[in-house]
């Protein structure tokens, strides 16, 4: 390391501005270190309890067939509950986990020790963000696995039960049974469901980034959480405001300006709400998913940049 340190020194430009250009690799290493520690921190804070609640919910939802629902309805209900819970839990977790990070570092003065090292503030923000996104990703994968396993098990059970029932009552030809099975399986486990899960994850990334931005301004976790929830809520109605701004040309000036401002400032979370469509069986093409991912990256980049601009001169 000393050789690396040594050949860095001379490159400090006299009077230059933030001369951290050299060693992007080193910077990635720092972000990785910060992300890893953040990941470990959230892991050891036992924030993963909500995964347990999720599993219980999904398992309970999977035993809902006391309702004499048809197999199809039963599987739909299971998907609704599981994906709904996944979406809600992931979003809430993203808000709360992100809100805990910077304010607690600030309060413990850990931030002072970190920034007293040669760590640019954007590295710090990006490291924290990557860490929390990593945690969210891991939880989404775990929930997806639980959900997939339960759905698959239920699907197999329902198919077996319905086929047995049909054979017993008689009058069904091979062909009819195949149709029955196919309809049932169309409600079961399939790849398109992964698009919904991916959308849930992308939405959480945006939530993390916007909450991170809030926490660079706020001084407490509680405040950050509250503002995070407000943004979460308004973000779901944002498209209404955008519609109003773009189409309600006859409305009053102030109303239009206000809705325009809301549409400009708040993220649009509706774009990520594709669970309903996917459960109803609509297939999301790859192109649409790519656009969604592109939008997410843009959101995360812009919000991180704004977070840095706000955080750059913050007094610690």
């Amino acid at each position: 390391m000393s050789s690396r340190e040594a050949d860095r020194k001379p490159r400090v430009k006299p009077g230059g501005t933030v001369a951290t250009r050299r060693g992007i690799g080193a910077s990635a290493g720092r972000i990785g270190t910060l992300a890893g520690t953040t990941f470990l921190q959230l892991l050891r804070m036992k924030t993963f309890y909500f995964l347990l609640i999720f599993s219980i919910l999904v398992v309970v939802a999977s035993t809902f067939n006391v309702l004499h629902h048809t197999g199809e309805q039963h599987l739909k209900l299971l998907k609704d509950v599981a994906l709904g819970a996944m979406s809600l839990f992931t979003s809430l977790f993203a808000i709360v986990a992100t809100a805990l990070l910077i304010p607690s570092d600030l309060e413990d003065r850990t931030l002072q020790t970190i920034l007293a090292k040669p760590v640019p503030r954007y590295d710090y923000i990006l490291g924290k963000l990557c860490g929390v996104i990593l945690v969210v990703a891991v939880s989404v994968v775990v929930m997806d696995l639980i959900f997939g396993a339960v759905l698959y098990a239920r699907e197999e059970m329902m198919v077996a039960a319905e086929l047995a029932g049909a054979t017993e009552s008689g009058g069904f030809a091979e062909e009819d049974l195949a149709v029955l099975e196919e309809r049932l399986r169309s409600q079961g486990l399939n790849w398109n469901l992964q698009n919904a899960v991916a959308a849930i994850f992308l939405k959480s990334c945006v939530i993390c980034a916007v909450t991170m931005l809030v926490s660079t301004i706020a001084s407490t976790s509680l405040f950050t959480i509250i503002v995070g929830f407000v943004i979460f809520f308004i973000g779901h109605l944002q498209s209404v405001a955008r519609d109003y701004w773009m189409h309600a040309l006859d409305a009053g000036l102030w109303k239009r300006l206000f809705s325009g401002l809301v549409a400009l400032i708040f993220p649009d979370f509706q774009i990520f709400n594709v669970v309903d469509g996917v459960v109803a069986g609509e297939v999301i093409p790859l192109g649409a998913m790519t656009r969604m991912a592109g939008l997410t990256i843009l959101y995360v980049m812009v919000y991180s940049m704004v977070a840095y601009l706000v955080f750059a001169d913050r007094e610690l």
């Binding site: 955008r242 773009m246 774009i271 469509g277 999301i284 093409p285 656009r291 939008l295 843009l298």
Partner: peptide, 22 residues
């Protein structure tokens, strides 16, 4: 960013409607 994404998100919304996602 808000101005930039407004039309983009609007067009995505339209596409989502076309795909019956919305």
């Amino acid at each position: 960013f808000g101005i930039g994404r407004m039309s983009w998100e609007g067009s995505m919304e339209e596409e989502w409607k076309r795909l019956q996602l919305r």
